[in-house]
């Protein structure tokens, strides 16, 4: 297996995944600066660790789990400070591009407003298309928990998704 921490390999790895990791981090952090910071830290882990991945799917799963955990840690540490918490008032507004449909904005806001604990399963299931058992294995949760979390997420997204026609 190629050593990802080697420069050329890392550059190719970064090229493959930087947008994915950025988007994932943004979905948690709701801020460009924080998303960039978290995404950078995920790649720093790759660069300074000694990881070997079997294939691109393995890379994506690792990145998704690592980025999600890192973002949740950051959000958690903000919350623990007990001041200026990242509640709806303080969190930066998520703005969509101006030329998009209202329904699309609703879906986007609904997805980005999902609780952090549900976002990793939503990403892996909806975005990456992994079956629930694989998600459960990657996240180290019982399959039933993952399915319950997906069900909760779907309930929260149901209304906006029903109105939206891609």
């Amino acid at each position: 297996m190629p050593d990802i921490s080697a420069n050329a390999e890392f550059e190719a790895f970064y090229e493959r995944h930087w947008q994915y990791v950025y988007r994932l981090c943004f979905s948690y952090m709701h801020s460009e600066a924080d998303a960039e910071d978290c995404a950078e830290d995920v790649f720093v882990k790759v660069l300074t660790g000694s990881f070997t991945f079997t294939d691109e799917t393995h890379e994506r799963k690792w990145l998704c789990v690592t980025a999600s955990n890192l973002c949740k840690d950051r959000l958690g540490s903000y919350g623990r400070r007990n001041v200026d918490s990242l509640d709806a008032e303080d969190a930066p507004e998520v703005t969509a591009p101006e030329d998009v449909e209202e329904d699309f904005v609703d879906v986007r806001e609904a997805v980005l407003s999902l609780p952090p604990k549900l976002k990793d399963v939503v990403w892996m299931y909806y975005y990456d298309g992994y079956p629930t058992d694989e998600i459960a294995a990657a996240l180290g949760r019982p399959p039933s928990t993952v399915r319950n979390q997906l069900r909760d997420a779907r309930k929260k997204l149901e209304k906006t998704l029903r109105n939206y026609k891609p």
């Binding site: 943004f26 986007r108 997805v111 779907r154 998704l161 891609p166």
Partner: peptide, 14 residues
């Protein structure tokens, strides 16, 4: 539903 969520997440532009 899956496509809708994928589309919204893809719309996050760095």
């Amino acid at each position: 539903e899956r496509a809708a969520v994928q589309e919204t997440l893809d719309s996050i532009e760095p």
